[in-house]
């Protein structure tokens, strides 16, 4: 990634608006002193932009905690409900840029892909007893494509072109991004996660999700990402469902089809994500 692009993204991403539905809900819930904390948490942890910004804030050097915070729930226990509520509120009400309309990138479809990847990754981690905290896996799934939301906002034309070419060539989106933008969404998301001092495992997982580097967190997200695409839950702009590499087959002792069979009916995961998006 060249320095110009890097600087541009770093500078602008602070102003990135969260998803409008979440903003509305957070403002509504925060106005009620007696709102159930779990309702507020649900909104925060289902919005990739708010989650990412919250983790950025709580892990920042300015506000150094002795441990790094990998999930919204950790932030809640360590910083307290009110602090997280007010952080979310300040994120939700930040002066937002006008959202650009893109024919090829629909925020709802993107959110559906991110949410189902998150919940399927969490499901896989539990089902296969993977050595990773289930909450961290959810966050990693939710944020794995964060770079796409950034590119859609700040490199709109080139990103649209990447999606179009990937579709025409039936090639993975990140390959088209590399050719057209000079950086792919995984690199962009990973760079931001690094700069914002997010937990290393999370940053590595975001950066590495197309690189074939195995980790307990990354492997759950890789599989969930493919399962979500195969199940056609939402759309991530990537037309290709990737084969399981050897290390994935080894960890789960299953290939893609066997994994789909094992996981069975996932319509519940889709329904939960829909319920949230349509809230």
């Amino acid at each position: 990634m060249n320095d110009d692009l890097q600087n541009k993204l770093m500078g602008m991403v602070d102003q990135m608006p969260p998803f409008p539905k979440s903003v509305h809900r957070i403002i509504e819930l925060s106005a009620d002193m007696n709102c159930a904390p779990k309702d507020l948490v649900q909104v925060i942890e289902h919005d990739p932009v708010i989650t990412m910004k919250l983790l950025k804030l709580v892990n920042s050097a300015f506000f150094s905690l002795a441990r790094s915070i990998a999930s919204v729930r950790h932030a809640l226990v360590y910083l307290g409900l009110n602090t997280v509520k007010n952080l979310a509120l300040s994120i939700a009400t930040v002066d937002s840029l006008p959202r650009k309309k893109m024919d090829c990138f629909n925020p709802r479809d993107f959110l559906m892909h991110s949410l189902t990847t998150a919940s399927i990754a969490q499901h896989i981690a539990k089902k296969f007893d993977v050595e990773a905290d289930a909450t961290d896996v959810f966050v990693a799934g939710l944020l794995h494509d964060f770079g796409k939301a950034v590119l859609a906002q700040f490199e709109t034309d080139l990103f649209a072109q990447s999606i179009q070419e990937a579709e025409n060539n039936q090639e993975p989106l990140h390959i088209a991004e590399l050719r057209i933008i000079g950086a792919d969404h995984a690199q962009v998301g990973g760079m931001l996660a690094d700069k914002w001092e997010l937990p290393k495992e999370l940053a590595d997982c975001i950066r590495g999700h197309h690189q074939g580097i195995s980790s307990p967190l990354g492997d759950c997200v890789f599989v969930a990402n493919q399962v979500s695409k195969q199940s056609e839950f939402g759309c991530s702009g990537n037309p290709v469902v990737e084969e399981f590499p050897d290390y994935i087959v080894q960890r789960f002792s299953l290939n893609m089809q066997e994994m789909m069979d094992q996981l069975g009916d996932l319509s519940d995961e889709k329904a939960k994500a829909s319920a949230f998006i349509n809230m």
């Binding site: 159930a36 729930r73 226990v77 307290g80």
Partner: peptide
């Protein structure tokens, strides 16, 4: 003292409790 925001029969209860216990 930090309290659990979930009810005992919510699926999130145990995991949230383990973060509280650690804290």
């Amino acid at each position: 003292p930090v309290f659990n925001i979930y009810e005992p029969d919510d699926e999130e209860f145990q995991e949230y409790q383990s973060i509280i216990d650690e804290k």
